[in-house]
């Protein structure tokens, strides 16, 4: 890995990370601001959620509603919107990292330098992880100081575990995006392929919850392994989730590196 390449990637796409982080922060500030009024009506909300169809509750990941700030955020924000933001951010970055450079032919400049393709791939990937850590700090970990400022009770361990789990989920999506970026010649293809796979995973996750005979399908979906409500409620992340995210990331990264090393680049 090269520090120069990592820095170059972070610098080149800094606006992407900044904009998404601001969006993530904006959501948190909004929810924290309206939390006091929601807190007073939690009983009414519980009734509403109880009356919703099971499928909708699962689709929106709004189980485990608690009258605490993190319980509320995990059910309203971290369960779906936050994950969608992570997916959009990471897939966009993945497309830019390799495929877009091939599309615009700037990859020719990099490949004409004495830089190993593996080095280039891993440096860009590492820059993605660094960007993701920054995003998670600004869009999730920040709840901790915000709660302190507003005098809300906060479970720090829960906040950190959810951040860790979100990071693993994000790295998995990043690995998937990078794999497609190494195989594609346009950023649009990366978005379409990664988005398509994640959509299929999400559909499998919902279907497995609604149709008992399809129960095992959930194991094929990354969404099964991240449940903010459960993380906050149990104050833990399951080992199986960690292993699945790591194995998934490792496998897709290896495939991506192999594909990028072998691919012919018309620049």
């Amino acid at each position: 890995m090269s520090f120069t390449l990592i820095l170059q990637a972070l610098k080149a796409k800094r606006m992407l990370w900044i904009v998404y982080s601001i969006i993530g922060l904006g959501f948190i500030l909004l929810y924290v601001a309206i939390f006091p009024s929601i807190q007073g009506q939690s009983a009414d909300y519980d009734k509403i959620f109880a009356s919703l169809p099971k499928g909708l509750v699962l689709a929106l990941n709004i189980s485990n509603v608690e009258p605490t700030l993190m319980g509320y955020l995990s059910s309203k924000h971290f369960g779906l919107i936050w994950l969608v933001i992570i997916i959009l951010l990471v897939v966009t970055y993945s497309g830019f990292a390799i495929a877009k450079e091939i599309e615009t032919k700037t990859m020719g400049f990099l490949l004409s330098q004495p830089i190993k393709r593996v080095n280039l791939y891993l440096s860009r990937f590492t820059a993605g992880i660094i960007g993701l850590v920054v995003f998670i700090c600004i869009s999730e970990i920040i709840v901790w100081p915000l709660a302190k400022i507003c005098n809300y009770t906060i479970d720090v361990k829960g906040v950190l575990l959810l951040g860790f789990s979100g990071l693993l989920f994000g790295i998995s999506v990043l690995s998937l995006g990078f794999m497609f970026s190494a195989l594609s010649s346009t950023a649009a293809k990366v978005s379409a392929l990664s988005g398509g796979i994640l959509l299929v995973m999400y559909a499998a996750f919902i279907a497995s919850s609604l149709v008992p005979s399809l129960d095992k399908l959930k194991y094929l979906s990354l969404f099964h392994y991240i449940s903010p409500g459960a993380i906050i409620q149990n104050d833990s992340v399951t080992l199986s989730s960690i292993i699945v995210f790591i194995v998934f990331s490792f496998t897709t990264t290896l495939i991506g590196i192999f594909a990028f090393k072998k691919r012919q680049v018309l620049v």
Partner: peptide, 30 residues
């Protein structure tokens, strides 16, 4: 490539970088 200088037919470089930034980047690599 450590010993090759290459000018492609249509040199596509980073449009958001300045001339000096390109040279700085190359200095760090080379």
């Amino acid at each position: 490539k450590k010993q090759i200088g290459y000018v492609p037919a249509d040199p596509i470089l980073y449009q958001d970088w300045s001339v000096n930034e390109h040279i700085r980047f190359l200095t760090k690599i080379r």
